[in-house]
Each structure stands twice: as structure tokens, then as C-alpha cells.
């Protein structure tokens, strides 16, 4: 039990960082930067969701963004006003063209749809381990993308859905991010999380646990998808316009880089990686657009952000394969340090 109190304290620390960023942005930042902070919150939730599965089950996941896409599209299709649907989604199936749902109903249905799909997909996926499982997640991303691109009546296909009511605020995003931190941290340190992590490090332990480990993996997968669903809903309700491109490889690369650079095995890694990579990404994006620096006009270089992400991942894997934070949460590291110091003091 004290274990969970400890992890709640750790979550509080991380949550405080997020809250600080949100408050500072609300008070001091111009709208342009507020927008960046909002997207940061959305990405942070996605990265934490990714961490819940990757960090505990030990399986590299390339398909997480699929769930963000499913949730974002579902909520958009439900909540968009009938007036806009008449032009945008006139042929929507299941009578959806003539329906319009309230914001909370839409969000609830979107999350439910995401979780149900995640459960069905996960039941198939947990039978695989290691590399084949990772490739299966990649296939999932492709499948969902292909469906969104081709189910034109429901999704407008490659064209964007517009006119989604902009209901999400920075406050809501920050609240959800902090809640996600707590959920992820408590799951990590719960009995389930511990068992999952033990099994992912030790194949003998995993096979001894047999069926149970598959169930735990499925639980982590569904929880992960639910968090990604939250990220998708927030994105949809903030940006107001969504297209299939928003939920494909670009965002997969970005969120994966955030988690890997911070450290896959801890929620602290997810938070710190998201902060560091957002700063790096925004700077590179500024340079990419060919700004004038000190009177010199730099050339436009579309692709620079991608190079930045890729190079960061490669360097990180070579120099610090467990990420900036390493295997433990920052509060665990601090506690150990202060204990070491206290112990050292006793000896001398």
C-alpha cells in the first residue's frame, strides 16, 4: 500500500510540472504559444498512453496512433452539427448524417468505441511476442489508416472533416494530462504492472505465468488505447479539423521519439521526453520554414523536423539506450540518492 502512496507522490511531482507549464502558458503566453502548449498536452497524453503498454509489456508499439485516430474521428462525426454534416457528411451511414450528439455523449461514445476496438485487436495481438507483435501493431496502424482513407461516406476519406465544435481548452487538456500521469504511474507500480514488467524482462517468468501474462498484457493494451483515445478526442475538439494525415506516421514518429528519448520504462521518461522533444521539435520547425536569422534568410527545408527526430532517436539509442531518465522514476532516483547520502553520512 505504501508503495502506491509513494507512486501517487511521484505522480504529484510530475503533475506539478505539467500544471506549472499550463498555468504559465495561460498567464503569459501569446495565443500562438498557447496553441503549441495545448498540442504538447495532447502529445503528452499520447506518449503516456504509449508508455503504459511499451514500458510495462516490453513490446515496441507502432500502432498507438491508430487509437488516437479512431477516437478523434468518432467524436468528430458525432458532435459535428447537422448543418455542417449536410455538406460535409451527407452520406454518412447508420443515419449519422441526421444526428448530432452533445459533447459529453460524443466523448463517452468515442472512448467506448476506442476501448472496444482495442480489446478486440488486443485479444489477437497478445498471442504474439517480441518482433512479430511489434510488426502487428504497425499493421494495425496501416489498417486503420486505409479504412479512414476509404470509408469516404463516414470519414470523407482523404479530405478533412471540418466544423468540429472547438470545445476543448488548455485547462481541460492539462487536467487530462495530469490524470493520465496518475493512471500510468499507479498502473506501473500496481501488482499488475510489476508482474508485467517482471515478465517482460524474464522470459522464463513469462512462460511460467502463461495465460495470466496475456491477460495483463491485454489490460495494459486497452488502458493504453483509452489514454490515446483521450488524446484523440482533445485533438479533435481543439483543432476543429481532422484528416487522415494527422494520425499516421508523422505523429507516430514524433510520439515514439518523445518516449524513447525520455525513457520507455518510466512515466517520468514520458513526461521529460515530451518536454525536451517538443522544445527541440518547435525550434527545428521554426528553422524548417526558412526564417531570417541575424539578417540572413535561411532556405526552406521541409523534412528538417523529420531529420531531427530520426537523428535524435539514433543518437539516443547509441549513447543512452534507456533514455534520458533511465529505468526508474525520478522520485525513485532522488529517494535512492538521498538514502545513499544519508548512509554515506553515517559511515563517515
Amino acid at each position: 500500500m505504501s508503495n502506491l502512496v509513494q507512486s501517487a507522490k511521484g505522480a504529484l511531482l510530475l503533475g506539478a510540472i505539467v500544471a506549472l507549464i499550463a498555468v504559465a502558458a495561460t498567464l503569459f503566453a501569446e495565443p500562438f504559444y498557447q496553441r503549441i502548449v495545448f498540442i504538447f498536452m495532447v502529445n503528452l497524453i499520447a506518449v503516456i498512453g504509449l508508455q503504459v503498454f511499451m514500458g510495462n509489456a516490453g513490446i515496441t508499439n507502432y500502432g498507438h496512433i491508430a487509437f488516437m485516430g479512431i477516437a478523434a474521428y468518432t467524436v468528430a462525426i458525432l458532435v459535428t452539427p447537422i448543418a455542417i454534416k449536410k455538406t460535409a457528411l451527407a452520406n454518412a451511414p447508420f443515419g449519422l448524417a441526421g444526428m448530432e450528439f452533445g459533447i459529453w455523449t460524443s466523448v463517452a461514445i468515442a472512448l467506448l468505441v476506442t476501448v472496444v476496438i482495442a480489446f478486440l485487436v488486443g485479444s489477437m495481438l497478445v498471442r504474439q511476442t517480441g518482433t512479430p507483435a511489434s510488426i502487428a501493431t504497425l499493421a494495425l496502424l496501416v489498417i486503420v489508416h486505409v479504412v479512414i482513407m476509404n470509408w469516404v461516406d463516414l470519414t470523407r476519406g482523404p479530405r478533412a472533416i471540418y466544423g468540429v465544435p472547438v470545445k476543448a481548452t488548455l485547462g481541460w487538456a492539462a487536467f487530462c494530462a495530469i490524470a493520465a500521469i496518475f493512471v500510468a504511474r499507479l498502473f506501473r507500480d500496481s501488482r499488475w504492472g510489476l508482474q508485467l514488467r517482471a515478465a517482460s524482462e524474464n522470459i522464463a517468468a513469462a512462460s511460467a505465468m502463461g495465460v495470466r501474462i496475456k491477460r495483463l498484457r491485454l489490460a495494459a493494451w486497452v488502458l493504453s488505447a483509452a489514454l490515446l483515445g483521450v488524446a484523440g478526442v482533445l485533438f479533435s475538439l481543439f483543432v476543429g479539423t481532422i484528416s487522415p494525415r494527422s494520425f499516421y506516421f508523422d505523429l507516430t514518429f514524433l510520439t515514439l521519439a518523445m518516449l524513447v528519448v525520455g525513457g520507455v520504462y518510466s512515466v517520468s521518461g514520458a513526461v521529460i521526453g515530451s518536454v525536451v522533444m517538443t522544445v527541440g521539435f518547435e525550434i527545428t520547425r521554426y528553422l524548417e520554414n526558412g526564417p531570417s536569422l541575424a539578417g540572413i534568410k535561411l532556405p526552406e527545408m521541409f523534412g528538417l523536423t523529420g531529420v531531427f527526430l530520426g537523428v535524435t532517436i539514433v543518437l539516443c539509442m547509441i549513447l543512452r539506450p534507456h533514455g534520458l531518465v533511465g529505468g526508474d522514476e525520478i522520485d525513485e532516483i532522488w529517494r535512492r540518492r538521498s538514502q545513499d547520502r544519508a548512509a554515506g553520512g553515517d559511515v563517515s
Binding site: T60, A257, V307
Partner: peptide, 13 residues
């Protein structure tokens, strides 16, 4: 695998 993934992103971009 992640190193290769990173390398892939670099070449594409």
C-alpha cells in the same frame, strides 16, 4: 529496431 526506425526517418526526410 528503434535505431533502424530512426535511421529510416532520417533517410526519408
Amino acid at each position: 529496431m528503434l535505431t533502424a526506425f530512426g535511421a529510416s526517418i532520417v533517410i526519408q526526410n
